[in-house]
Simulated assay, not measured.
Amino acid sequence: MTITLYHNPACGTSRNTLAMIRASGEEPVVVDYLQAGWSAERLQSLAAQMGAPIRSLIRDKGTPARALGLFDEEADDPTIIAAMIAHPVIVNRPIVVSDKGVRLCRPSELVLELLSEPVARFTKEDGEAVGA
């Protein structure tokens, strides 16, 4: 199975997601999107594959999204996408792409639904146990 993780290494949820993927025996393609950036096509494709509007990928905490007016009703998709390209941190994370689908994995254990052999039990960085 090919798995791609759009990852922010400074994010605990993203790190936990990466660790769960690896604990399940997979080695994902890791895209540090803060370094790599985004294209309009990639953002639109990911949102479409999730069956979600582009605005569902906006991250508020620690980003300029609110100051840029991205939560206003008037903010249309092209405006949101342009802001995400200019400020990659606005895109919520982690986003995982696998043969089983595409999903924003918040909370991180949502990644387990995208893995062929998910780990049965996992302890997150903060000590929270996931699984049976």
Results as ranks from 00 to 15, higher is better:
Q35W: 01
R42S: 01
R42M: 05
L68F: 03
V30D: 12
G131V: 03
P53R: 03
L34S: 04
K100Y: 11
R59N: 02
D77P: 08
S116F: 09
I90L: 07
T4E: 09
W38Y: 00
A19E: 12
S45G: 08
A120Q: 15
G101N: 08
G12L: 13
R121C: 13
N16E: 02
Y6Q: 01
G69T: 07
P107D: 09
E74C: 10
P94K: 08
D32H: 03
A23W: 07
G37P: 07
T63F: 10
G127C: 12
R22S: 10
L110Q: 15
E109C: 12
V111M: 05
R93G: 04
R106H: 03
A129C: 09
V111S: 05
L68Y: 01
V96R: 06
H87L: 05
K61I: 11
D99F: 06
P107M: 08
S45A: 14
A83T: 01
T4R: 15
Q44R: 15
S98G: 03
N8F: 07
G127I: 04
I21K: 02
A10Q: 14
P64A: 00
I80A: 00
G127R: 12
V89E: 14
K124S: 09
V89K: 13
D126A: 07
I80L: 00
F122M: 12
A120N: 13
P78F: 08
G25H: 13
K100L: 15
I21C: 10
I95A: 08
A75N: 07
Y33S: 02
I21D: 01
A23R: 11
T13S: 07
Y6G: 01
Q35F: 02
A129D: 10
D72Q: 13
G131K: 10
Y33K: 04
L5F: 08
S98K: 08
E117L: 11
E26I: 09
M1L: 12
L115N: 10
S45K: 08
R15V: 06
M1Y: 12
H7V: 03
E113M: 09
Q49A: 14
T79A: 13
A48D: 11
T13P: 01
L46T: 06
Q35E: 13
S14G: 03
